[in-house]
Design a protein around this nucleic acid. Structure first.
Length: 271
DNA sequence: CTTTAAACCTGCTGGC
DNA sequence: TGCCAGCAGGTTTAAA
C-alpha cells in the first residue's frame, strides 16, 4: 500500500506530536511483526526513551530515539494511527504508550509489515542496500542512466527495485512511466539520455504532487496517522483506469502484468 | 551477477 | 447462498 508519498505524509502527520515525548510502555507487540531484535528486547529497551525526531528513508518510517531507532515498514496493509484506536482491534499488531498520554497504534491486516529497534550503525546497515532518494540532488540524469545501463529487464522492474531508486511502488511507477511516455516493458538499458531526463523529471513532479495531496487512498486502506485519506487518487492517469480512455489520446488504458504486478499504460502514448 | 518466480498473509470481489 | 478463482499499494528468498 504505502509508497514514498504515503510514508512521507504519515511522517508529517506524526512530526508535530511525537518529538520530545517519552515512550512509557509497549503494552502490545505481535512477535510476528518484529524483524529485529527480539520482541522481548523491543519491549524492554523502548520504555524511557525520548523521541528525538521522525524521519523517512524510502518507504521506511524512522522514529529516532535516544541511541536507538524505532523503524516501521508498512508493506502492503500496515497503518499507523495516533491516539484514536478506531480500527478493528483484530488487526492491532503493536501499541506504544507515551508519557503524555498519546498512543501510537500499528494495524496490519495482511501481517507483512515489520518493526525494528536498532542503533545508528545497524540502521545504516539496514539502509545500505537502498538506492538514492528520488529527490537526492546527486541523482542526476547521468547517474540514473548509469544505474540502468546494460540492464535488459523491463524498465518497470528496475523502477520497483529499491536498490536502483528508493521509494517507488506500483502506483507511482505506472504514473511516472505514463508521464514519461515510456513503455513499462522497455529494456531498462535502452533508454536514451533524453528519455532518462523525462523519466527523472516525471518521477520528481509526480511524487511532489502526490505528497502535496497527502498520497493516494484506494479501498480506504491508506490513511495518515490522524486518519485522513490521501487526495491524489483523482489525479491518477493510468493506475486503476483499465479500459478507460487515455486522458491524452483517448485510447483505452491497457492492463498487463509486468514483474508480477498489475501494470496500467497507454499503448499509443507510451513506447 | 541478472532475471524471474514463488512465498509470505488476509480479505474482498466477481463469476457460476 | 455458497464456493472458488483471482486480485491487492511490498519485499525477501529461491531457482534458473
Amino acid at each position: 500500500m504505502p509508497e514514498l508519498p504515503e510514508v512521507e505524509t504519515i511522517r508529517r502527520s506524526l512530526a508535530p506530536h511525537l518529538p520530545e515525548d517519552v515512550i512509557a510502555a509497549v503494552p502490545l507487540l505481535d512477535p510476528h511483526a518484529v524483524a529485529e531484535p527480539s520482541p522481548e528486547a523491543i519491549v524492554g529497551i523502548a520504555p524511557g526513551k525520548r523521541v528525538t525526531g521522525i524521519h523517512r528513508r524510502a518507504k521506511y518510517l524512522v522514529i529516532a530515539l535516544e541511541a536507538h531507532n524505532l523503524v516501521v515498514h508498512l508493506r502492503m496493509s500496515g497503518r499507523l494511527r495516533l491516539d484514536r484506536p478506531v480500527e478493528d482491534m483484530r488487526y492491532l499488531r503493536a501499541q506504544w504508550n507515551f508519557a503524555s498520554g498519546r498512543v501510537l497504534c500499528f494495524y496490519d491486516v495482511r501481517r507483512f509489515g515489520r518493526i525494528w529497534l536498532v542503533d545508528d550503525d545497524r540502521l545504516a546497515a539496514l539502509f545500505a542496500p537502498l538506492g538514492p532518494e528520488p529527490f537526492d540532488p546527486a541523482l542526476t540524469v547521468a547517474a540514473l542512466q548509469d544505474r540502468l545501463a546494460r540492464r535488459t529487464a523491463p524498465l518497470k522492474s528496475l523502477l520497483l527495485d529499491q536498490r536502483i531508486i528508493a521509494g517507488l511502488g506500483n502506483i507511482y511507477v505506472d504514473e511516472i512511466l505514463f508521464a514519461s511516455n515510456l513503455h513499462p516493458r522497455r529494456p531498462a538499458g535502452s533508454l536514451a539520455e533524453a528519455e532518462v531526463a523525462r523519466l527523472l523529471d516525471a518521477t520528481r513532479s509526480i511524487l511532489q504532487a502526490a505528497i502535496a495531496n497527502g498520497g493516494t487512498t484506494f479501498d480506504a486502506v491508506y490513511r495518515d496517522a490522524e486518519g485522513r485519506p490521501g487526495r491524489y487518487r483523482s489525479h491518477l492517469s493510468v493506475y486503476g483506469r483499465a479500459e478507460e480512455p487515455c486522458l491524452t489520446c483517448g485510447a483505452p488504458i491497457q492492463r498487463i502484468v509486468v514483474a508480477q504486478r498489475g501494470t496500467h499504460f497507454c499503448a499509443r502514448c507510451q513506447s
